[in-house]
């Protein structure tokens, strides 16, 4: 697996993502500069967390017009696997690869803590290595992670099975108390209708070693590796 990690000016989780792929998983990883127009043969594109372009205007709004994003969008439209984490999720909604929008957290505070996520489906490229209904412990770190979509459109997402991760308590119950930012239906991560683009606010790349507090993030990255190995057979 070769993973291209995009670096925008203001990205600050690009090295975490690179390290998780390269040093923990032992896979090939490369940084892709935002001004580049070459995906360098990557099988998976990761849009990392951070504050691209200082979050000016709206989080992710300016990054989407970077030269590299034209290639990422074409890659995604042709079925390539793309994962956007935190700011990367915001970029994916801004550029239209994923539906909805990420708004200011309901309580207006930046939230940085471990949360629990319920895995809603395991028959996807991003969750194949998880158990049905598994609860993952993965950290969040964001001020604008409040997922919003209009009522009927959220219902459409739910009906299509595009919601992959929901904020829940330690036992997997999806409650208002477990919702850290006001996201509609406790949504923490979604995929596109084609099933090849994932966006999530929590940071799986920060939960890849026991010394970090959890290795649950690896399950998502290993799911992708597993899906890619199937693709290439």
């Amino acid at each position: 697996m070769k993973v291209g990690v995009v670096t925008f000016p203001g990205s600050n989780c690009d090295y975490d993502a690179y390290s998780a792929i390269k040093h923990i998983m032992g896979e090939d990883a490369t940084f892709l500069w935002h001004q580049s127009t070459d995906l360098e043969g990557s099988d998976l594109i990761m849009l990392p967390g951070g504050f691209s372009y200082g979050d000016y205007l709206r989080a992710g709004a300016i990054a989407r017009f970077s030269p590299i994003m034209e290639k990422v969008i074409a890659f995604a439209r042709s079925g390539g696997l793309v994962v956007g984490i935190c700011n990367g999720f915001q970029v994916l909604t801004e550029c239209g690869l994923l539906p909805g929008a990420l708004m200011r957290n309901r309580h207006l505070r930046f939230s940085c803590k471990y949360v629990h996520l319920r895995v809603e489906r395991t028959d996807t490229a991003f969750t194949g290595r998880c158990e049905d209904g598994e609860v993952l412990r993965i950290p969040i770190a964001h001020g604008e992670g409040n997922y919003f979509y209009h009522d009927d459109e959220v219902q459409q997402l739910e009906d299509n099975g595009q919601v992959l991760f929901r904020y829940c308590d330690a036992s997997g119950r999806v409650t208002p108390e477990a919702n850290p930012n006001g996201s509609v239906n406790n949504i923490a991560g979604i995929m596109n209708a084609g099933g090849n683009v994932l966006g999530m606010m929590p940071h799986p790349e920060r939960a890849v070693e026991l010394i970090l507090g959890s290795t649950d993030g690896l399950k998502i990255l290993e799911s992708v590796r597993h899906a890619l190995s199937y693709q290439s057979v």
């Binding site: 205007l57 709206r58 709004a61 300016i62 017009f65 909604t93 801004e94 539906p99 909805g100 929008a101 708004m103 919003f148 979509y149």
Partner: peptide
């Protein structure tokens, strides 16, 4: 395209 996000 840029100044507003038509979703919200």
């Amino acid at each position: 395209k840029l100044l507003s996000n038509p979703v919200i």
